[in-house]
C-alpha cells in the first residue's frame, strides 16, 4: 500500500511536467489544446527511436522535447495564421501526429527494457555516490524499513528535475515576454494595443507548452520501459485533471504558487489513480472514465460550492434585515 504511493509520486512527478505544459495552453493562453494527446507520444517516439539507435539518452530526451515544440508551434500557426478554431486546430494536429508518430516509430510499440536510458544512467550515478544508504538510514533507524521505497534514485532525481523545470518556468513567466504571454490569454486586444504581436506569443507559447508535454512523454517511455503509439490517448484530460485538482486544493493568485499547485495536482491525481486501481471491481481500462469523472467533479464542485455560499449569505442577510427591521 505505502510502497505503491512512492510509485504514484514518481509518475506524478513525471506527469507534472506535462501538466505544467497544459497549464500554459489551457490557463495562461486560454487555448484548450488537444495537440497534447499527439505531442506526448511524439516526445516518447523520438526519444525511444534515438535511444534504440544508440544515441545518448540525454540528447534523445532533449530531441524529443524539441519535436514537441515544433508540433505545438504548428497548432499555434493553424490557429493564428489559418484562423482555425483552437479546439479544431488541436484535433487536426492530434490526428496528424498519430500518423507522424507511427512513421517515427516504424512500429506501434518499441521496448526499451534493455536499453541505456536516462534512468539507468541516473541509477548508475546514484550507486557510485552511494546515496541510497543515506536516504535509507532514517527508515532503518525508525524500524520501518519495510515501508521504504525500493530505491530512492528515481524519486530524488525526478524531484530535482521538477524543481528545475518549475524554477525555469517561474522565471520565464515573470520576464517581460512571459508577462506579455500571460496577458495574451487574458486580454488580446489590450496586448495588441501595446504593440505586442499576439500571434507570435500564441505560437511560441503553444510551442513551449507542447515542449513540456513531449519532454514528459520522453521521460514516461524511459521510466516505463516502452513506447506505445496509444500512450497519449486521453492525456489532455489527465493534464486538465491535474491542473484543476491543483488549483482547487492548492491554488493561489501568484504564478509561483500556481506552478507548485499544478505539480501537486499531478501527484494527487496519480495517487487517486493508484488507489482506484486497488479497488477490486475496477480495471485499468476503467481509468479513463474515472479521470473524466474527476475532471467533472473538480469543475462542477467549486462552482456549486460558490452558489450555495452565495445562497446562504443571501439568506443570512435577509434574516438580518428581518430581525433589525
Amino acid at each position: 500500500m505505502i510502497t505503491s504511493i512512492y510509485g504514484a509520486i514518481e509518475s506524478g512527478l513525471i506527469y507534472a511536467i506535462m501538466a505544467l505544459g497544459v497549464y500554459i495552453s489551457f490557463r495562461l493562453l486560454d487555448f484548450p489544446d488537444l495537440t497534447v494527446d499527439g505531442s506526448f507520444v511524439t516526445g516518447g517516439a523520438v526519444t525511444s527511436v534515438m535511444i534504440v539507435n544508440g544515441t545518448d539518452p540525454f540528447t534523445a530526451t532533449i530531441a524529443g522535447a524539441i519535436a514537441g515544440f515544433f508540433a505545438g508551434c504548428i497548432t499555434g500557426l493553424l490557429h493564428t495564421k489559418g484562423n482555425i478554431n483552437p479546439l479544431l486546430a488541436g484535433i487536426l494536429m492530434m490526428i496528424a501526429l498519430y500518423s507522424i508518430n507511427l512513421r517515427i516509430m516504424g512500429q506501434p510499440n518499441i521496448p526499451l527494457l534493455n536499453e541505456h536510458t536516462l534512468f539507468t544512467t541516473l541509477s548508475g550515478w546514484w550507486e557510485a555516490l552511494n546515496l541510497e544508504a543515506i536516504f535509507m538510514a532514517p527508515f532503518h533507524w525508525l524500524g520501518i524499513a519495510d515501508f521504504a521505497p525500493r530505491s530512492f534514485y528515481a524519486l530524488m532525481s525526478l524531484l530535482v528535475l521538477i524543481i528545475i523545470v518549475k524554477k525555469l518556468m517561474d522565471f520565464f513567466l515573470r520576464t517581460e515576454a512571459g508577462t506579455t504571454l500571460r496577458a495574451t490569454g487574458d486580454n488580446q486586444k489590450m496586448v495588441r494595443s501595446f504593440s505586442a504581436n499576439t500571434s507570435l506569443y500564441i505560437i511560441v507559447g503553444m510551442g513551449v507548452s507542447n515542449m513540456l508535454v513531449a519532454f514528459s512523454g520522453a521521460m514516461v517511455v524511459q521510466h516505463s520501459g516502452f513506447a506505445d503509439i496509444n500512450l497519449g490517448v486521453g492525456m489532455i484530460i489527465i493534464g486538465l485533471a491535474s491542473v484543476i485538482i491543483g488549483e482547487v486544493l492548492f491554488g493561489k493568485d501568484k504564478i509561483v504558487r500556481m506552478t507548485l499547485a499544478v505539480i501537486l495536482g499531478a501527484i494527487v491525481y496519480r495517487i487517486i489513480y493508484s488507489m482506484a486501481l486497488r479497488i477490486d471491481f475496477l480495471e485499468a481500462s476503467d481509468m479513463k472514465l474515472i479521470t473524466a469523472l474527476i475532471v467533472v467533479v473538480a469543475l462542477v464542485f467549486p462552482h456549486w460550492l460558490g452558489q450555495t455560499n452565495a445562497k446562504n449569505q443571501y439568506k443570512k442577510s435577509k434574516a438580518k434585515a428581518a430581525s433589525s427591521g
Partner: peptide, 17 residues
C-alpha cells in the same frame, strides 16, 4: 504596467517587474 512599457521597446527575457 510592464506590458504597457513594452510598447516602445522589444520585450526582453529579463525580470519584468
Amino acid at each position: 504596467m510592464v506590458i504597457s512599457l513594452g510598447r516602445t521597446k522589444r520585450r526582453s527575457l529579463f525580470r519584468g517587474v
